[in-house]
Amino acid sequence: MDLFKMFSKSDNSKDIAKERLKLVLIHDRANVSPQFLEMIKSEIIGVISDYMEIDEAGLEIKLTRTKRDVDDTSVPALVANIPIKKMKDNGKF
């Protein structure tokens, strides 16, 4: 059984359920709406665009969970993935 599992990635429906639940609960618990995330996203774009050219379409921002280094408890984290096209000169001194 485990041999089979090694070759195929898990497609058990319960794993899908668990993953979906974890994500939806992060939003439920933090009381964060998608609109709220959009607001953060556009402000981040605004700030970073002063210093570098970024791929706005490829920008991804989400709430997830991460383990705290100090005691391994799970805490919510805001993760942003911002692809940079190129640096702007006016950001340099």
Partner: peptide, 14 residues
């Protein structure tokens, strides 16, 4: 057992 329902540990974890 067939992986089509969350088990006890899954739910306690969540």
């Amino acid at each position: 057992k067939r992986g089509d329902m969350m088990n006890i540990d899954d739910m306690i974890d969540i």
